[in-house]
Design a protein around this nucleic acid. Structure first.
Length: 282
DNA sequence: GCGACAG
DNA sequence: ATCTTGTCGC
Protein backbone atom coordinates (compact mmCIF):
# COMPACT_ATOMS: atom_id res chain seq x y z
CA UNK A 1 0.00 0.00 0.00
CA UNK A 2 1.95 3.00 -1.25
CA UNK A 3 0.56 6.31 -0.20
CA UNK A 4 2.92 8.52 -2.18
CA UNK A 5 0.73 10.53 -4.55
CA UNK A 6 3.41 12.98 -5.57
CA UNK A 7 6.74 11.14 -6.02
CA UNK A 8 8.14 14.28 -7.61
CA UNK A 9 7.66 16.19 -4.37
CA UNK A 10 9.18 13.65 -2.00
CA UNK A 11 11.81 15.54 0.04
CA UNK A 12 15.28 15.01 -1.38
CA UNK A 13 18.08 15.95 1.02
CA UNK A 14 20.55 16.10 -1.86
CA UNK A 15 18.86 19.12 -3.40
CA UNK A 16 20.49 22.53 -3.28
CA UNK A 17 18.98 25.06 -0.96
CA UNK A 18 17.56 26.97 -3.92
CA UNK A 19 15.92 23.83 -5.29
CA UNK A 20 14.46 23.01 -1.88
CA UNK A 21 12.90 26.43 -1.69
CA UNK A 22 11.61 26.16 -5.24
CA UNK A 23 9.97 22.84 -4.33
CA UNK A 24 8.36 24.46 -1.30
CA UNK A 25 6.84 27.12 -3.52
CA UNK A 26 5.34 24.38 -5.66
CA UNK A 27 4.08 22.52 -2.59
CA UNK A 28 2.40 25.68 -1.34
CA UNK A 29 0.65 26.05 -4.70
CA UNK A 30 -0.57 22.46 -4.57
CA UNK A 31 -1.68 22.71 -0.95
CA UNK A 32 -5.35 23.16 -0.09
CA UNK A 33 -5.72 25.34 2.98
CA UNK A 34 -9.41 24.71 3.49
CA UNK A 35 -11.52 21.78 4.58
CA UNK A 36 -11.55 18.95 2.08
CA UNK A 37 -12.08 15.64 3.82
CA UNK A 38 -14.80 13.04 4.23
CA UNK A 39 -14.88 12.35 7.94
CA UNK A 40 -17.33 13.97 10.31
CA UNK A 41 -15.85 16.54 12.67
CA UNK A 42 -18.79 16.37 15.02
CA UNK A 43 -17.88 12.88 16.10
CA UNK A 44 -14.99 14.41 18.00
CA UNK A 45 -16.69 15.70 21.10
CA UNK A 46 -14.30 17.16 23.60
CA UNK A 47 -15.63 19.53 26.27
CA UNK A 48 -12.65 21.74 25.59
CA UNK A 49 -13.61 22.27 21.95
CA UNK A 50 -16.47 24.60 22.67
CA UNK A 51 -16.36 26.52 19.40
CA UNK A 52 -17.09 23.53 17.14
CA UNK A 53 -17.98 23.74 13.46
CA UNK A 54 -20.62 26.37 14.13
CA UNK A 55 -17.82 28.93 14.12
CA UNK A 56 -18.23 29.37 10.39
CA UNK A 57 -16.90 32.90 10.26
CA UNK A 58 -18.09 34.12 6.90
CA UNK A 59 -15.93 33.24 3.92
CA UNK A 60 -13.81 30.21 3.16
CA UNK A 61 -15.46 26.97 4.12
CA UNK A 62 -14.99 24.03 1.79
CA UNK A 63 -18.23 22.88 0.29
CA UNK A 64 -16.77 19.56 -0.83
CA UNK A 65 -17.53 18.33 2.62
CA UNK A 66 -20.75 16.43 2.02
CA UNK A 67 -24.19 17.38 3.21
CA UNK A 68 -23.97 20.06 5.81
CA UNK A 69 -27.63 19.89 6.63
CA UNK A 70 -27.96 16.31 7.80
CA UNK A 71 -27.46 15.52 11.46
CA UNK A 72 -25.97 12.36 12.79
CA UNK A 73 -27.37 10.75 15.87
CA UNK A 74 -24.09 9.62 17.28
CA UNK A 75 -23.71 6.49 15.22
CA UNK A 76 -21.08 7.97 12.93
CA UNK A 77 -17.60 6.54 12.94
CA UNK A 78 -14.84 8.60 14.44
CA UNK A 79 -11.92 9.50 12.17
CA UNK A 80 -8.71 7.50 12.26
CA UNK A 81 -5.98 9.94 13.26
CA UNK A 82 -2.24 9.43 12.98
CA UNK A 83 0.12 11.31 15.28
CA UNK A 84 3.71 11.62 14.06
CA UNK A 85 6.82 12.52 16.03
CA UNK A 86 10.52 11.72 16.10
CA UNK A 87 13.37 11.12 18.48
CA UNK A 88 17.04 11.25 17.50
CA UNK A 89 20.15 9.19 17.90
CA UNK A 90 22.77 11.90 17.77
CA UNK A 91 25.65 9.79 18.98
CA UNK A 92 25.81 7.49 16.01
CA UNK A 93 27.65 7.95 12.75
CA UNK A 94 25.75 9.12 10.87
CA UNK A 95 23.09 10.50 13.16
CA UNK A 96 19.77 8.71 12.86
CA UNK A 97 16.13 9.66 13.28
CA UNK A 98 13.48 7.39 14.76
CA UNK A 99 10.12 8.29 13.27
CA UNK A 100 7.14 7.08 15.27
CA UNK A 101 3.50 7.02 14.26
CA UNK A 102 0.63 6.21 16.58
CA UNK A 103 -2.76 5.70 14.96
CA UNK A 104 -5.81 6.35 17.09
CA UNK A 105 -9.57 6.32 16.74
CA UNK A 106 -11.33 7.81 19.73
CA UNK A 107 -9.74 6.28 22.80
CA UNK A 108 -8.41 3.29 20.88
CA UNK A 109 -4.84 2.90 19.65
CA UNK A 110 -5.11 1.06 16.34
CA UNK A 111 -1.40 0.60 15.73
CA UNK A 112 2.09 1.92 16.40
CA UNK A 113 4.94 1.78 13.92
CA UNK A 114 8.38 3.29 13.63
CA UNK A 115 11.36 3.45 11.31
CA UNK A 116 15.00 4.29 11.98
CA UNK A 117 16.68 6.28 9.23
CA UNK A 118 20.10 7.89 8.81
CA UNK A 119 19.96 11.67 8.62
CA UNK A 120 21.56 13.28 5.59
CA UNK A 121 21.50 16.97 6.37
CA UNK A 122 21.52 19.21 9.45
CA UNK A 123 18.56 21.15 10.74
CA UNK A 124 18.02 24.44 8.96
CA UNK A 125 15.07 26.67 9.94
CA UNK A 126 12.58 26.56 7.08
CA UNK A 127 13.94 23.35 5.58
CA UNK A 128 12.96 20.91 8.31
CA UNK A 129 10.99 18.63 5.99
CA UNK A 130 14.10 17.93 3.90
CA UNK A 131 15.84 16.57 6.99
CA UNK A 132 12.92 14.71 8.58
CA UNK A 133 10.47 14.15 5.73
CA UNK A 134 12.23 11.13 4.24
CA UNK A 135 12.42 9.35 7.61
CA UNK A 136 8.74 10.08 8.23
CA UNK A 137 7.69 8.64 4.89
CA UNK A 138 9.61 5.46 5.67
CA UNK A 139 7.56 5.05 8.84
CA UNK A 140 4.37 5.74 6.88
CA UNK A 141 5.26 2.79 4.64
CA UNK A 142 5.06 0.56 7.70
CA UNK A 143 1.44 1.47 8.39
CA UNK A 144 -1.23 -1.18 8.04
CA UNK A 145 -4.16 1.14 8.59
CA UNK A 146 -5.17 4.04 6.39
CA UNK A 147 -5.50 7.21 8.53
CA UNK A 148 -8.13 9.83 7.72
CA UNK A 149 -5.62 12.48 8.70
CA UNK A 150 -2.14 13.14 10.07
CA UNK A 151 -0.95 15.39 12.88
CA UNK A 152 2.71 16.43 12.72
CA UNK A 153 4.98 18.03 15.25
CA UNK A 154 5.99 21.19 13.45
CA UNK A 155 4.38 23.80 11.28
CA UNK A 156 2.14 23.58 8.29
CA UNK A 157 1.21 26.86 6.66
CA UNK A 158 3.00 28.82 9.40
CA UNK A 159 6.19 28.79 7.36
CA UNK A 160 8.28 31.27 5.35
CA UNK A 161 6.98 29.80 2.09
CA UNK A 162 3.75 28.35 3.49
CA UNK A 163 5.17 24.86 3.16
CA UNK A 164 6.12 23.52 6.58
CA UNK A 165 6.59 19.81 7.22
CA UNK A 166 2.86 19.16 7.78
CA UNK A 167 2.07 20.74 4.43
CA UNK A 168 4.89 18.95 2.65
CA UNK A 169 3.87 15.55 3.97
CA UNK A 170 0.18 16.23 3.42
CA UNK A 171 0.69 17.12 -0.24
CA UNK A 172 3.01 14.18 -0.91
CA UNK A 173 0.52 11.79 0.69
CA UNK A 174 -2.51 13.75 -0.51
CA UNK A 175 -3.93 13.38 2.99
CA UNK A 176 -5.57 15.87 5.34
CA UNK A 177 -2.85 17.08 7.71
CA UNK A 178 -2.29 19.52 10.54
CA UNK A 179 0.87 21.03 11.95
CA UNK A 180 1.26 21.31 15.73
CA UNK A 181 4.32 23.30 16.82
CA UNK A 182 5.50 24.24 20.29
CA UNK A 183 7.07 27.48 19.17
CA UNK A 184 6.41 30.03 16.45
CA UNK A 185 8.59 29.88 13.33
CA UNK A 186 7.29 33.05 11.73
CA UNK A 187 4.16 35.10 11.48
CA UNK A 188 2.62 37.24 14.17
CA UNK A 189 -0.12 36.79 16.74
CA UNK A 190 -2.89 39.37 16.56
CA UNK A 191 -3.23 39.46 20.31
CA UNK A 192 -1.66 38.70 23.66
CA UNK A 193 -0.65 35.08 24.15
CA UNK A 194 0.01 35.25 27.87
CA UNK A 195 -2.08 33.11 30.13
CA UNK A 196 -4.85 32.32 27.65
CA UNK A 197 -7.77 30.27 28.93
CA UNK A 198 -8.01 26.62 27.88
CA UNK A 199 -10.00 26.28 24.67
CA UNK A 200 -8.97 29.72 23.46
CA UNK A 201 -7.26 30.61 20.19
CA UNK A 202 -5.50 33.69 18.80
CA UNK A 203 -4.95 34.22 15.04
CA UNK A 204 -1.44 34.02 13.62
CA UNK A 205 -1.06 36.21 10.55
CA UNK A 206 1.64 36.56 7.95
CA UNK A 207 4.17 39.32 8.54
CA UNK A 208 7.14 40.54 6.51
CA UNK A 209 9.01 37.30 7.09
CA UNK A 210 6.41 35.28 5.21
CA UNK A 211 6.32 35.20 1.42
CA UNK A 212 2.62 35.97 1.08
CA UNK A 213 0.28 38.89 1.59
CA UNK A 214 0.79 40.41 5.04
CA UNK A 215 -2.21 39.70 7.21
CA UNK A 216 -2.98 36.33 5.65
CA UNK A 217 -4.38 33.97 8.30
CA UNK A 218 -1.74 31.23 8.65
CA UNK A 219 -3.03 29.44 11.71
CA UNK A 220 -3.77 29.87 15.40
CA UNK A 221 -2.05 29.92 18.76
CA UNK A 222 -4.20 27.34 20.55
CA UNK A 223 -4.46 26.90 24.29
CA UNK A 224 -5.12 23.20 24.79
CA UNK A 225 -4.25 23.25 28.47
CA UNK A 226 -4.00 25.84 31.18
CA UNK A 227 -3.51 25.88 34.93
CA UNK A 228 -6.19 27.27 37.19
CA UNK A 229 -3.89 28.98 39.63
CA UNK A 230 -2.07 32.27 39.15
CA UNK A 231 1.58 31.36 39.58
CA UNK A 232 2.45 29.28 36.56
CA UNK A 233 0.99 29.13 33.08
CA UNK A 234 1.28 26.99 29.97
CA UNK A 235 2.35 28.38 26.58
CA UNK A 236 0.00 27.85 23.67
CA UNK A 237 0.55 25.51 20.73
CA UNK A 238 0.89 26.90 17.23
CA UNK A 239 -1.54 25.04 15.01
CA UNK A 240 -1.72 25.47 11.26
CA UNK A 241 -3.23 23.77 8.21
CA UNK A 242 -1.05 21.18 6.57
CA UNK A 243 -3.18 20.15 3.61
CA UNK A 244 -6.94 19.86 2.97
CA UNK A 245 -7.76 21.49 6.32
CA UNK A 246 -8.69 25.09 7.03
CA UNK A 247 -7.22 27.10 9.91
CA UNK A 248 -10.40 27.01 12.01
CA UNK A 249 -10.73 23.27 11.62
CA UNK A 250 -7.06 22.72 12.39
CA UNK A 251 -7.54 24.54 15.70
CA UNK A 252 -10.81 22.68 16.36
CA UNK A 253 -9.05 19.37 15.82
CA UNK A 254 -6.16 20.22 18.13
CA UNK A 255 -8.62 21.06 20.89
CA UNK A 256 -10.93 18.13 20.25
CA UNK A 257 -8.02 15.68 20.38
CA UNK A 258 -6.54 17.10 23.57
CA UNK A 259 -7.19 15.22 26.81
CA UNK A 260 -5.79 17.31 29.58
CA UNK A 261 -2.23 17.48 28.31
CA UNK A 262 -0.67 20.20 26.23
CA UNK A 263 -0.29 18.04 23.15
CA UNK A 264 -3.20 16.46 21.25
CA UNK A 265 -3.34 12.77 22.21
CA UNK A 266 -2.11 11.27 18.91
CA UNK A 267 1.07 13.36 18.88
CA UNK A 268 1.57 12.98 22.61
CA UNK A 269 1.46 9.20 22.19
CA UNK A 270 3.79 9.34 19.19
CA UNK A 271 6.16 11.50 21.21
CA UNK A 272 6.44 9.01 24.05
CA UNK A 273 6.53 6.04 21.68
CA UNK A 274 9.47 7.61 19.81
CA UNK A 275 11.42 7.77 23.06
CA UNK A 276 10.29 4.33 24.19
CA UNK A 277 11.31 2.69 20.92
CA UNK A 278 14.65 4.45 20.95
CA UNK A 279 15.40 2.95 24.33
CA UNK A 280 14.68 -0.54 23.04
CA UNK A 281 17.11 -0.28 20.15
CA UNK A 282 20.09 -2.60 19.77
C1' DG B 1 26.38 44.11 9.78
C1' DC B 2 22.25 42.63 13.06
C1' DG B 3 18.31 39.95 14.24
C1' DA B 4 15.21 35.68 13.67
C1' DC B 5 15.10 30.91 13.36
C1' DA B 6 9.60 24.42 13.59
C1' DG B 7 12.69 20.14 15.34
C1' DA C 1 15.82 17.68 18.86
C1' DT C 2 19.33 16.05 22.85
C1' DC C 3 22.28 16.17 27.33
C1' DT C 4 20.41 16.05 32.87
C1' DT C 5 19.22 17.38 38.75
C1' DG C 6 16.57 19.58 41.10
C1' DT C 7 12.40 21.84 42.14
C1' DC C 8 7.89 24.24 42.21
C1' DG C 9 3.00 23.26 42.45
C1' DC C 10 -1.33 20.54 42.83
Amino acid sequence: MTRIHRPDLVPDAALSRADMEAMQHEIAREAVFEDDFAFDLETLTNPLAATSASTSSGSGGGSSNGSGSSRHTGSTTQPVVAGVDQSFLLDSEPERALSAIVVTQGDEVLERVFAVTPLEIPYVPGLLSFREGGPILEAVENLTTDPDMFLFDGSGRIHFREAGIATHMGVVLDAPSVGVAKSLLCGEATGDLENLAAGTRVPIEANARVETDPGTLLGYAVQTKQYDSPNRYVNPLYVSPGHRVGPETAADLALALSTGYKLPEPVRLADSYADEAKGELD
